[in-house]
Design a protein around this nucleic acid. Structure first.
Lengths: 241, 241
DNA sequence: GCCGATTTGTCCGTATGTATC
DNA sequence: CGATACATACGGACAAATCGG
């Protein structure tokens, strides 16, 4: 959490919007007014506002102003958008996370694994299966592949807690980008065994490739979600590119 | 398609990346070099690059440079991110779209519809059911709700072609923001009737609320996708807010 | 319809901080 | 340590859209 000026302004405005200081559909104070309140430059303020736009809090209109379009019921608790670990998002929503490690092995990528994950053939990997519980319910079955020489000395104990915490705080790896693809897939025997799927015969699947600051893809993960608890939110803008 | 300087730079750099002028994992020329090539200011160049970051083409690293992380196989044809109509994305991928209007009615929002869509009770709406074909296959079943006084004089004929084209080019409505939520739902009788679901008993469902430049939500749409042809792509970054 | 005030959008230049090598 | 790279922040100028008189 950097303490730059524009993130502070962003957080302050976001807070004012969420607490209802500006009403739904109301215009925020004009740029010039906000520049004075925050004693900052125009660029700095505009940067904060543009982050609010991408997060779906406000919309800007040339010649008119900046309108609050935040609706608490919709924004919900499960806004995805950034990169967040299971543990992080659980805690943010005041829920109790638990992780069970079903399988912890070391493998070498063959052609088949390479095709699925994007790692080159011959890569030395950790392969894990983990089951994530939220408030006691098994919701997500994860297949994780980590490059061994990046996520070095990973253990089952770490995997039961939080791998991301270990990567960032102990190994000082900075996670930068993640490409995610969402699909719907038929359930497998493993899914059926560990997740309570009820009548559903398929799951929501999120496949992601994660890069560190050296530009190496060090993680491929396939998250298989119980469909009735899955929800993915997104704010799109009409882009002119 | 505005002809601003930074969109031109964005498009040029993106094109150079896609055509392989910069190799995967290679560093782009430094900011200062690019500023000179494009004869622009620092802000303008940085704006173009930051768009490439959000689109997953490059990653920036302080003190190091800007790395190309574009992989053609993955980027695929179906990158979602902005707001795009069915017709637009079909044409962009050189596929043949067809739309069949199953139902075209005018309704008034009651409590139930209001809860589902977010329109206030009493709103006058067009309600449509449309079936979208791609290369002859029925892939998407849409339930569209439009505010009547915004999407005025909508007809069945327009709905068979492209509603967005009508809204933008004839009514001169500018579409600004869209909030989307992705879930997986069990199939209904209507789904089963019109989409070839095979063994699947559920679908990928995208619910979206769309706003115009006056800040009024004028559209609620639920798109029900055949799961085996559904794919939603996303580039996330570790954000510090 | 025009004009001027207001508001956001684009673009430029510069200075300083911070990470990397 | 210095050179290079991106990150943050400031200030100013003009364009484009909106609104009221």
């Amino acid at each position: 959490m950097p303490k730059t000026k524009y993130t502070e302004i962003y957080r302050d405005l976001k807070n004012k919007i969420e607490t209802g200081e500006y009403e739904f559909q109301e215009l925020l104070p004009s740029e010039n007014q906000l520049i004075q309140s925050y004693d900052c430059s125009r660029n700095t303020l505009r940067r904060a506002v543009s982050s609010l736009v991408t997060d779906g809090y406000v919309q800007t209109m040339q010649g008119k102003g900046v309108r609050n379009i935040f609706q608490p019921t919709l924004q919900a608790s499960f806004t995805i958008g950034g990169i967040e670990s299971f543990r992080e998002s659980a805690l943010r929503n005041h829920q109790v996370p638990k992780t069970e490690v079903l399988c912890f092995t070391e493998i070498t990528a063959d052609k088949k694994i390479s095709n699925r994950t994007g790692f080159p053939v011959g890569s030395e990997l950790y392969y894990l299966q983990r089951l994530h519980y939220l408030d006691g319910k098994a919701l997500i079955l994860n297949h994780n592949y980590f490059l061994k020489h990046v996520a070095r000395n990973l253990t089952r104990e770490i995997a039961e807690h939080s791998i991301y915490e270990y990567l960032e705080q102990t190994l000082h790896i900075t996670i930068v980008t993640s490409k995610r693809i969402m699909t719907v897939e038929k359930m497998t025997e493993i899914d059926e065994k560990y997740l309570e799927l009820g009548d559903y015969n398929c799951l929501a699947v999120v496949s992601s490739q994660t890069y560190n600051s050296d530009g190496v893809m060090f993680e491929y993960t396939q998250s298989r979600h119980r469909p009735d608890y899955f929800r993915f939110q997104d704010n799109a803008t009409r882009r002119m590119m």
